[in-house]
Amino acid sequence: MASLQDQFMKAGLVSKGKAKQLNQDKSRQQKLDRKSGVQTVDEAKQAALEIQRQQAERARELNAQRDAAARQKAIEAQIVQMIQQHKQAKLTRGAAEVAYNYTHDGKIKRMFVSAQVRDHIAAGHLVIVCQGEAAELLPKTIGDKIAERDPARVVYVKQAEAPAEDDPYADFKVPDDLMW
């Protein structure tokens, strides 16, 4: 295989005299380097190595971003699957016995449920989870798993509140199913 210099000479880009002069200069520089013990720094080689390092770093960053996006997409798919598999039946407005009110994004929202389901929500056995614009009822264990993956999805979870020690109204509990 011909060297790059030979290829340039065949293409007419470099004359034979210019190629000979470059070879002599190169060998002279190498001889001086050997005698002095100092190596010259090839700036082009250093620049190429720096560019290669930067490209590798950029590739690592892009791969990390791509991996993070893939992980987030997988978590989202897991959440949707859990919601679809474990959602509890809700009633339509006409068949509902009770309207259950809860807050989400600073707004009071209403869900129509049976009295038995309302009692389960109030007792903390069911949680309200948001999927898009819809709210679904899920068992508390599934709601906890979803909260581990995306806490913003779980809209309402009944919290067991311990009364303060010096609370004069500790004996008078406010019912959870109080109608608004």
Rank of each mutant, 00 (worst) to 15 (best):
G132C: 10
R34F: 09
V174T: 12
A162G: 07
E57K: 14
K16D: 12
C130F: 00
K87C: 08
K109D: 05
H120W: 02
D25E: 12
H120D: 09
V117H: 05
M111T: 09
K45F: 11
Y100T: 02
K10C: 02
E165F: 08
V41Y: 07
Q84R: 13
G37S: 05
Q21I: 02
I146E: 02
P139V: 01
V113W: 01
S3H: 12
K140Y: 10
G106M: 09
K87Y: 06
A135H: 15
T92L: 13
M111A: 09
A59R: 13
K35P: 00
S36N: 13
S15D: 08
K158G: 04
A74C: 04
E61A: 12
K16P: 04
K20C: 06
R71T: 11
Q88I: 14
E76I: 02
Y102S: 07
A48E: 08
A70R: 12
V157G: 06
N23D: 11
V155I: 11
F172P: 03
K18N: 04
Q116Y: 08
L22G: 00
Q88E: 13
Q52I: 03
I79L: 05
I75N: 06
V98L: 03
S114E: 00
A123R: 09
V41G: 04
A64P: 02
G94H: 09
M82P: 03
R110K: 14
A11F: 05
K73R: 15
D177V: 03
A56D: 15
V157F: 02
V129A: 02
V38F: 13
K158P: 02
A77C: 07
G37E: 08
K145M: 13
V157P: 03
Q81C: 10
R58A: 15
T103G: 03
V38E: 11
I75L: 09
K45H: 10
H86L: 06
A164P: 01
I108D: 07
R110N: 07
E161Y: 05
V129F: 00
Q55V: 06
V155Y: 03
E61G: 05
Q65M: 06
A115Y: 04
T40H: 13
I79A: 09
V98E: 08
M111Y: 00
K45T: 12
I128F: 07
T40N: 13
T40Y: 11
K109P: 00
D177N: 10
S3R: 12
A96Q: 05
Q54L: 10
V157L: 06
Q131G: 00
S114C: 06
E165A: 14
D167P: 04
Q46T: 14
D67Q: 12
E97G: 11
R53H: 12
P168D: 10
G17E: 15
Q78K: 12
I146G: 01
G94S: 14
I146Y: 07
M179R: 10
A68E: 15
L4S: 07
L4G: 01
N101I: 09
K173A: 11
H125V: 10
G143D: 04
A68D: 13
A135G: 01
V155F: 01
A95P: 03
Q84N: 12
A164N: 08
Q88W: 04
V113K: 01
Y100R: 10
I142V: 15
F112Q: 13
I128V: 13
K107W: 08
Q84H: 10
L4K: 13
D33W: 07
F172V: 14
